[in-house]
Amino acid sequence: MICAAAIASTAHAAEKPVIALTWDDLPAHSALPPGVTRVQVAADLLKAFADAKAQGFGFINGALTEREPDSAPALKMWRQAGQPLGNHTWSHPNIASLTPEQFTAEIARNEPMLKDLMGKNDWRWLRYPFLSEGDTQEKRLAVRAWLAANHYKIASVTVSFGDYAFNEPYARCVAKGDQAAIADLETRFLDGAAAVADRSRAMAKTLYGKDIPYVLLMHGGAFDARMAPRLLKLYQDKGFGFTTLAKAERHPFYRTDVDPSRPPEPTTLEDALKAKNLPVPASPVDLAALEGMCR
């Protein structure tokens, strides 16, 4: 006979929220502090994933390996660690400034590098630069049709706290040796991550009455690497388990992104709430406060 406590424990385990970790702008995101290399950033991120037993799905911009040739080994390290890579376009353009043909050419230009790195593994995931799917519906539909014809899935984002904005201030503060400012950045980073996780869960529960599998947007920057162990522990302490991007996007919320041939539906929690005329909670993160740090 199964006791009530065991049933309750099983139910609690089933309700544990899960989050997939994704990392954009590989292999060379934002400014580096003095003495730090792209290879070291990758090594630190990969160690954090290994320690947490988590997948870190990376999205690459091939142009970065031309701009910073010393960063190229970071991508091979990513693969040697068993972590997957996907397409973030060649040079990270905003689709608003391009035609659909120009934008899809940017995606295609990244493919030889991905094929070489990923081999027979699935690399046909696109993360839109700036999370922008187009400034017109016609453009959005044209790109989605290309993605469907070329067997791509779209990597949605349902948790994002603006981590990208911390990397340049961090590089400045390290250069100045301002330890108090660095400590302030660390606090702001973790507080922002915690608050946004709570906000995303609240939005999902408004829409579904329960959690969905979440997809976290991060970037392969030096401060991200410094904070990754503490960030992943924060999610674990908040009760999250780690999942893969492919498993997370099996949830119906993401159905129009894993099959771009479908008519597009909102694939951010904010837009899904707006589509139902439901209020969107305010962002709890003040990124503007970072701009003046260590100037």
Rank of each mutant, 00 (worst) to 15 (best):
V159W: 12
A282Y: 07
E186Y: 08
N121T: 11
G62E: 00
A13G: 15
S283P: 05
L232Q: 03
D191P: 14
L64G: 00
P34H: 05
P17F: 02
M113Q: 08
W90K: 03
G220R: 12
T37A: 14
L75Q: 05
G239K: 06
A195H: 12
H219Q: 14
R144A: 11
A81F: 15
V258P: 02
A145F: 01
F57M: 07
L190V: 05
T104Q: 08
L190W: 12
T99D: 12
M118V: 05
W23T: 04
A74S: 08
A181D: 09
K76Y: 06
R230G: 11
C294Y: 13
D198W: 09
K205A: 15
A289Y: 15
I19M: 08
E101C: 08
G58T: 04
A81N: 03
S132Q: 15
N277V: 05
Y164K: 13
D257P: 00
D70L: 13
A248F: 07
L245T: 02
Y254N: 02
I212Y: 06
L245A: 06
H219T: 07
E15I: 09
Q80G: 10
S71Q: 15
R127W: 03
T89L: 06
N121L: 11
R199E: 11
L147G: 05
A42V: 13
A50C: 14
P93C: 09
Q40E: 15
G62W: 07
E186M: 09
A52G: 06
A105M: 08
A248R: 00
E186R: 14
L231M: 05
A142S: 05
V285D: 01
A202Q: 12
V174T: 11
V280N: 05
K205G: 14
D224T: 07
F223C: 05
M293L: 07
V196S: 06
N87I: 04
E138K: 11
S91A: 13
V157D: 10
M1G: 09
R295P: 02
T65V: 09
P169G: 10
P213D: 00
L117E: 07
S30Y: 07
K247P: 11
R255D: 08
M1Y: 12
A149Y: 02
G220H: 10
R79P: 03
D224P: 04
N121S: 11
K139I: 10
L117Y: 02
K205T: 09
L46D: 01
Y208V: 00
Q40P: 06
V159I: 15
K276G: 00
A43P: 00
K238P: 13
S30H: 10
D198H: 13
H29V: 00
M203I: 06
A171R: 05
K76I: 15
W90V: 07
Y170H: 10
A194R: 12
S91N: 08
W78G: 02
L45C: 08
S97G: 09
R38Q: 12
D257W: 06
M203N: 08
R172S: 08
E249A: 05
N150I: 10
R144L: 09
R199T: 04
V36A: 12
D24I: 02
P93D: 13
H219L: 01
N61V: 05
E106A: 14
F240T: 04
S200F: 03
D178Q: 10
D191M: 13
L64S: 00
V285P: 01
A54D: 04
L190I: 05
A275F: 14
R188G: 04
A180G: 13
S71D: 14
F223D: 00
S283C: 08
P229N: 04
A225N: 02
F57L: 14
